[in-house]
Design a protein around this nucleic acid. Structure first.
Length: 410
RNA sequence: GGAGGCGUCGCCUAGUCCGGUCUAUGGCGCCGCACUGCUAAUGCGGUUUGGGGUUUACCCCCCAUCGAGGGUUCAAAUCCCUCCGCCUCCGCCA
């Protein structure tokens, strides 16, 4: 456990503090139970007693009651402390995860072929230039209305999003996922339970007046969907494909990806989410990755799969695979999808359990992006652009775009 | 937004007015056993969840849990406050 937290870049002292807080929580709990038990047996005698005997009993009961209250307060304090410490602690890192920061990922596979635009005889345009020429993206007016990192999808841009979403939902449904439209505003418990109020809290929008959080992904409402429930083991796995808007403050990214729609405050996303038995979690993680690969291959994009390094994992992930598409005008691979194995981390916090025979225990949750719309549009526009400024539509999307084979400049 | 009603251990339900006998009633469902050519029916027993103690294990014991959290009290399902959810009516609204 210590090694895991160090790999994550957390303070090892936190683990020790947590262990001692947990011991205090236990011992104060035992003391409370004993006093309470005594108080209960005394309480049974009082209604039957009379006269001096009763006066005496009431006096004793009064003293005991004060002791119980003191013990209760002590127990509460220890509980709170342990809980606070636990919330700061991330999931245990899977032993195969490469140790290190953002740059220390391991490349697991490469798919597709990167185009050689020089050989084709033209300079690739970036997604914003293409999107504006197609009448698909308008960031200037979005800046007027909402500020930076917002966008309008217009005309074929709007149609392209709808096509992507329909195609993604179709793939997920064919794979056995239940399609879900989820709330974008959630209570603190859902946010906290999924692990987004830890280190990631700065990146989350909060509506103070109503104490709602805007979700950064439908992972949140999908994980909290079965909150406080016990699921029969033979019902597993449960697989949901959520579609929702996603909101991110993108704090601390000033000057990063400022052009176009690669990094924005609001976007739509189709997300896969699985509830499985803990023993099946690693296999499910691989399946989620395979579905992502299938999706990106159907869009005919060149991409690589990486095993994200320890310090770059979210607090809830034990292991994370990203699919990064090649972005020609940036000359590098950029994250398009991400799948995390959260093991029992979220299930414990949200109290989602499974029953197998007599045993009730937390299950495992996993999530994986199927299609984060704006980034996918970026990758499609840039990779499928043609010398005349038009963009070839991948075949999987054509049925959803009225058979259209290209998007053409206006 | 206004008024009223409701929330009990899988589901339904008794209990709440008037605090202690609630160790929460009964039915359904489910599990086990018995009985019966099979099935069904019947009988008996069991059946919230979490934490702790004990144990090889089973058993057993203690504490919490009556939507959630506070309060009053020696003592709370029961009284008071706040919040959450559901239902009905009114208003407003895409």
């Amino acid at each position: 456990m210590r090694a895991s937290q160090r790999a994550r870049g957390e303070d090892v002292a936190l683990v020790d503090a947590l262990l001692s807080a947990d011991e205090r929580r236990r011992s104060s709990g035992v003391r409370f139970d004993e006093l309470r038990s005594e108080q209960k047996s005394l309480g049974k005698l009082i209604p039957k007693a009379t006269g001096d005997e009763k006066t005496e009993l009431l006096k004793k009961a009064g003293e005991l009651s004060a002791a119980v209250k003191a013990a209760d307060a002590e127990k509460d304090e220890a509980d709170q402390e342990a809980k606070q410490l636990l919330l700061r602690l991330g999931n245990i890192v899977h032993p195969d995860v490469p140790v290190g920061g953002e740059e220390d990922f391991a490349v697991l596979a490469k798919h597709g072929t990167i185009r050689d635009f020089a050989a084709e005889g033209f300079e690739p345009r970036d997604h914003l230039e293409l999107g504006e020429a197609l009448g698909a993206i308008d960031v200037e007016r979005a800046a007027k209305v909402s500020g930076s990192r917002f966008y309008y999808l217009t005309g074929v841009g709007a149609l392209l999003e709808l096509a992507l979403v329909n195609a993604a939902i179709a793939q997920a449904t064919a794979a056995g996922f239940t399609p879900m439209l989820t709330p974008a505003l959630v209570r603190p418990r859902a946010m906290e339970g999924t692990g987004f109020l830890g280190q990631a809290a700065e990146d989350v929008y909060h509506l103070e007046k109503d104490d709602f959080y805007l979700v950064g992904t439908s992972e949140v409402p999908l994980a909290a969907y079965h909150m406080d429930e016990i699921i029969e083991a033979d019902k597993l796995p449960l697989r949901y494909a959520g579609f929702s808007p996603c909101f991110r403050r993108e704090a601390g990214t000033y000057g990063k990806d400022t052009r176009g729609i690669f990094r924005v405050h609001q976007f739509d996303k189709v997300e896969m989410f699985s509830y499985v038995e803990p023993e099946d979690a690693e296999a499910e993680h691989q399946r989620l990755l395979d579905w992502e690969i299938q999706w990106l291959q159907s869009l005919e994009l060149p991409f690589q799969v990486i095993d994200v390094a320890s310090a770059d994992l979210g607090s809830s992930a034990s292991r994370k695979f990203d699919c990064e598409a090649w972005i020609p005008t940036q000359g590098k691979y950029r994250e398009l999808t991400s799948t995390s194995n959260c093991t029992e981390f979220q299930a414990r916090r949200l109290s989602v359990r499974m029953r197998e025979g007599k045993k009730v225990q937390p299950l495992a949750t996993l999530n994986g992006t199927l299609c984060a719309v704006p980034r996918t549009i970026v990758a499609i526009l840039e990779n499928h652009q043609q010398a005349d400024g038009s963009v070839r539509v991948p075949e999987v999307l054509r049925p959803y775009l009225g058979g259209r084979e290209t998007l053409d400049p206006q």
